[in-house]
Simulated scan of single mutants.
Amino acid sequence: MIHTIRSTRFNLSISKLVKPHVIRAYATVPPGAPAFQVFDRHVKQMQKDRAAISVESSREVDYIKDEVAARVADRLLDIKRNFSQVVDLGSGCGHIVKHLDPTMVKKLIMCDLSEKALLRDADQPCSIEIERHVVDEEHLPFKEDSLEAVLSSLSLNWVNDLPGALIQIRKALKPDGVFIGAMFGGDTLFELRTSLQLAETERESGVSPRVSPMTDSSDISRLLTRAGFTLTTVDVDEIQVNYPSAFELMQDLRSMGESNAVLSRRPLLQRDTLLAAASIYKELHGNPDGSIPATFQIIYMIGWKPSPDTPKPKKRGSANASLKDVL
């Protein structure tokens, strides 16, 4: 099933397609060892600050984050429980809060690395109580066993130590607390990545990381289990947006605060390389109407902190009905 949202600028659809992708691998490191640094967190904060300052242009590009946040909120709604307090980790201006109401959550604690992003829509009315705090997702300030639920939408993909962040989230949750997250997956912007690589190879005789490395869905499942979560669930969607050209795509990414923040990135993209990439993009991936598609793969995850009341899986062979008969 494909869901479509249309506007005068872009076309957005969600599907279950699978494409070749570049993944980010994780390895076990000794306790206390420093995490391998992939992203420049200070640069990411500046990018989010710059995007939030341009209020009108950043609101125009909320379409991806609002769509994903709605699906994260739907997963919270599926849990038949009234939450008195929920943390939104990496909240930005408040994409998730738009989809919550007092019957679900009484109070939302919005946390983000960028204070300007947190305050962008502080004057907008809201149906639930809100607190805003500047928080680095890599260093959570919450006490152990203090939170009922933690949500995170399109923020954890910029964290250097994702295993460590998940462990901190699990520790902060109360027993039987739930974590619901969404992050960009390995297929995200594969069209842009391949076009830039081909253009740089042709014009500059080499390539540099122009699109950030992403996490694979199979990695997420293992990382949740490794962090101590139980009853884990991972599923994947794809959002495809059609743009007039690669220039509009890159401008929207900048306005979203989603520009490249990899430490080893080249500081500048030469004009002739950029023009070549746009031409290659349209030639390799262009639509018949002249527009170009951009794919955003979204990995959704749910994990529960173990408690004495957590349901246990049945022993193998204990079923009293055949799945074949049921289906």
Rank of each mutant, 00 (worst) to 15 (best):
L269Y: 01
I292A: 07
L275K: 10
L284Y: 10
S307E: 09
T295K: 11
E283M: 04
R266Y: 06
K305N: 13
G286Y: 05
D309W: 03
K282L: 04
G290E: 09
P311D: 06
Q297T: 08
G303K: 12
S259H: 02
S255K: 09
E258H: 03
T310Q: 12
A278Y: 01
A294T: 03
N320G: 02
D252R: 05
T295D: 05
K282E: 15
V262A: 01
G290V: 09
I298S: 01
S259K: 01
Y300H: 04
L268D: 06
L263F: 01
Y281E: 02
V262N: 00
F296C: 10
Q270V: 12
G290N: 10
G290C: 05
A261L: 00
S291W: 07
T295H: 12
L274G: 09
S307H: 05
P267A: 05
W304Y: 12
T310G: 08
M301N: 00
A278N: 15
R271D: 07
K282A: 14
H285Y: 15
A319E: 10
T273I: 03
G286Q: 04
L253I: 12
E258Q: 10
K282Y: 04
M256N: 02
T310F: 03
I299R: 01
I298V: 15
R254G: 03
L274D: 07
P288N: 10
K282D: 14
L263D: 00
D252L: 09
P306Q: 15
T295R: 13
Y281L: 11
S255H: 11
R316C: 03
P313Q: 01
A276I: 03
N287D: 13
R316I: 12
G257Q: 00
D252Q: 10
P308L: 13
L274A: 13
R265V: 14
A277M: 02
D272T: 14
D309L: 14
A278L: 09
A294K: 08
L268T: 07
S279M: 13
L268W: 10
R265L: 14
G257M: 03
S279F: 04
Q297M: 10
A319T: 02
D272A: 09
K315S: 04
P288D: 14
G303D: 14
K305S: 12
A277D: 02
M256H: 06
R254Y: 10
K315L: 09
L268P: 00
G290F: 09
T295V: 08
H285C: 11
G317A: 07
Y300S: 02
E258D: 13
D289L: 13
R254V: 09
I299H: 03
S264L: 14
S264D: 06
